[in-house]
Every structure is written in C-alpha cells, then in structure tokens.
Design a binder for these strands. Sequence first.
RNA 1: GCCGGGUUGGCUGAGCGGUUUAGGCGGCUGCCUGCAGAGCAGCUCUACGGGGGUUCGAAUCCCUCGCCCGGCUCCA
Length: 485
Amino acid sequence: MTPGHLKLFDTMTRSKRPFEPLEPGEVKMYVCGPTVYGDPHIGNFKSFISADLLRRWLEYRGYDVVMIMNITDIDDKTIRDSAKAGEAIKEFTQRYTRSFLRGLDLLNIRRATAYPRATEYIPQMITFIQALLDKGVAYVTGDGVYFDIDKFPDYGRLSGVDLTQTQSTERMAKDEYDKESAQDFALWKKSTPEELARSEKEQGLAWDSPWGEGRPGWHIECSVMTRDLLGDTLDIHAGGEDLVFPHHTNEIAQSETLTGKQFVRYWVHIRHLMINGKKMSKSLGNYIGFDEVLAKYSSDAFRYFYLGTQYRRPLDYTDDAMKSAEGSVKRLENTLDLLEAACKASNTNLDLGPRERKLLDEVERHRSAFEAAMDDDLDSHTALDSLHAMSGAINDYLTATPNKGVTLRAYNTYRRLLDALGLFEKRGGGADKLTEDLIKTLIDLRNHFRKEKNYKSADEIRNRLASLGVILADNAEGTNWKIEK
RNA sequence: GCCGGGUUGGCUGAGCGGUUUAGGCGGCUGCCUGCAGAGCAGCUCUACGGGGGUUCGAAUCCCUCGCCCGGCUCCA
C-alpha cells in the first residue's frame, strides 16, 4: 500500500487534487450525518454509503482513519415533528437515531469512530459563540445571535456563489428573523414562548446561555464537534451536495474566524439520488425507505446499485436499475462461491503451468486497474468493470481442475477488493461443526442415491435442504454447499 | 433570473476526434449436468435529445434549442 496516489475532487478548488493528509498516514474525516426527525430514506444512504466507500478506500490504501459523523437532534424539524407526534423530543430523536443505525447495519455501512449528538455539545457551543462575539464578528438581537458574514472576506468561496449577484428569493424576502443582513446566519436561536412552555416539562429543548434560553443554530454543531474530536483542521469533510451552501459555507466562516486556520483540506460532496428521473421529495411523495427496498432486493444489490455510478454523477433509482444490479452482483458473488468451494476442495493439480500463470497475470492486471480507478476520485463504476473482468478470468480458470495454492492467491485478491467495496460481508456459512457434518452426511447420502439413479430421493434431499436455506450445487469434483442468508 | 451538472442501444452504464463503436444485466443457442443451479462458448442488441456548424472524419469540438437534476438560508 503506498498512500499518496489517491486523488479526490475538492469542492473548494473545483479540481481533483492528490490526497495528502496533514499527518502522514492518518486521516481525520468528518461526515455530515442525519437530522433524526424521521426514518432515513434511500437518498440519505447514498451519502452514507459513499462516505463509507471513501473511508474503506483510505483504509485499503493504508491510512489510519478517524471518522466522525454527527447526529442532529435539535433543530426546527425535530421540535416541530416531536410535538406533532405528541412525544418528548428526546424519545423522538432517540427512536429515529436507532432507525438510522439499523439502516447502517443492514446496508453494511461500517460504523464511524463516533456519532456525537448536538445536544451533548451545548456548553462547548456556547463557548464557541461567545468567542465569536468577543471577536466582534457576531451580534445579539432580540431573537438570537447572528454571524455577520461581512466580517468574513472569503465568504461563499466554497459554493462559488457571488452573494452580491444573488437575486433575493421569495424565501429570503419572507425571512422573519431579526437580522442586520438577510444573509447573516444564526449561531443561537432564542426559544419561542411555545418552546419555553414545553421545555418546562421536558429536557432537550432549551438551554441557558448568556443570551437567554435557547438552542443552537444549525451550523454551529459541526464547527464545535469537529474541533473537539478532530482538532482545528480536518483532512476530509464530506456530505450531500445540498450542504455546500449554506451549511458548509457557514461552518467555514465560523471555524476559520475562530481558529485562524484552514478548516478543511478536502471538501467532498456527494450527488443526490433521483427516483424515476425525478428528484426525490416529500412533496412528490416519492421517498422510499430502505426497508421497502430490502424487501425486494438484497443489501448487496442495493450497495452495488450505488457503486455502479461514481459518487459525483447522477444516479436514478428505478426498478430496472435495481434488477440489473441484482443480476450483476449475483454474478460477482457466484465467483466468490466458486472460489470458496475450490479452496475447500481437495485436488491434485500442483502445477504452475500456462493456465495458472495466465490467471495470476490477469488477476494482477485487473487488481491494478481496480486500484487506479478507485484512486481516481473513487471511480467505483470503473472499478466494478475490473472486478467483473477478474471474475470472468477466475471463472474461466475454475472450469478445469485448479491448483489450490493459485486459487487461494486469486481468492485473497478478489476478497480484498470486495471488502474495499463492502460487498458480500454477510455471507452464509458460519455453520458450526456439527451442522457442517450433518450437511456433509446428507450430501453423501444423496450422492449415494444419485449413484443408484434414485433421483427422486436425491432431489428430495436437495429440495428439503433448500427449504432450510442450504443450497447444494453439483459439479465434476463433487457437491458444493452453502447456507443462504 | 443567476450558477453548476446531465441527456448514449430492451435496461444499466463507459467512451470525451479516427483500431472490435466497452463492461454488466436481460434475451437466444450450444457445451456441461440424471435434473437443477453455477460456469464456459457463441449469438443477439449498432445507440448516441433536436437542429445547425468545424473537420478528410464527431457520440466525442463549437453554436443553438429542448428536457432532466442540483444550488441560490436550514433538504443527505
């Protein structure tokens, strides 16, 4: 593993840049996580899977990655919807946090190092905001504390939006907040009378501060939590494309004003998912939850679907696309089945002949192409091409009696690349010794029936095992089995 | 209105001036198999949103029009 070849597209410079962390060999990575006010949908998970892919690839490349993902559990929507549900905000957000974590596990998304929640960082936020006030870049009004963007000369550079040219939108015109400039953003919001009334009965809604009871603005949590957990400068900050402006733009203004240091070295933004050619939105009623998808397709197919397109390119969720992904991923998994079976089987091919050399050459060649693709701003689509090519070469090799040692080499490489993509982590198997022996006994019995041409009994054994999730497959060398998940 | 991304065969999705116009899925045929599954071999599928232009030659460059997606203050 030679770190240093990876190139990432950085939103700030709008270009692919060679990735180099501040500390050699270590990556400090922060990903904007969910606001827990409802069950996450498959669009949210595109960001999380892409971030997971980046993290896995950095680890493949030998970096030690610390990854933090925030959970926003206090904001307008959590307040509004918990009230609507007639539930205490804390219970409400905890419920949806669990739902989010469940989704991560179902989709083989590796857990981040930590998931800090906004409500656990209120004292640090207050300190942070006070420091900004002391620097004279923020001001207090009747309804909150605001950051004065005129005090940050570089404001808006990330998004490329020239704010002096921006047309005032209807939303901005209707802005009810008490700000000096429409574009200033809230650091702290004073509680409304309704919120105060509610907070007498439950916690997690309002906190004391030098500016009165209230709650944090949206952007401050990320600036505070990144600093606390990762330091002043992050190597990578990732999130959905919608966060470029205003969220990340405002984070930069806050953090860099406070620390005087570069906040983030590489900004990674992930393109949103579409559905049937349309944007996914609540108003169109076309939001889909991951449970709905997993009821029809495997989690590997779902992951493959996301991997089938580079993370900055548009991706459209359709039934056809999912079916196609299911077929493609099955093909890759079949190769894994064949490899595992070949590694278990006993055979007498001990040669390193032309077939073996050819296989090893091809495996190397495709591995190298895979790595080059992933190094090129995580081009998972091209990487999958190499994986399919490798799969074909392996299948071809396994049509004749393989050399077990050579097979093992191919397996190790193939498996490592699959791990980098997060595919087929939850494999069947995992049977205990007794179960394994019982299955083998039944296979022997069945093969005995087959030899006697008693196919009725042989098929009954196969069918009944299949109904238990144990799949048998005959080949020239014998019978392979696996347990389906 | 402004800024950015996209528009490719039955589906998915590369190509970014000219060798076979990828790969995968699907479909078909053959091999293998008692059958099934998987695999292998072969075939099918000749497309580039519309209209102009540049060029010996364009999906690929330029112009123009259309459509889709995102951002323009709280949506991953």
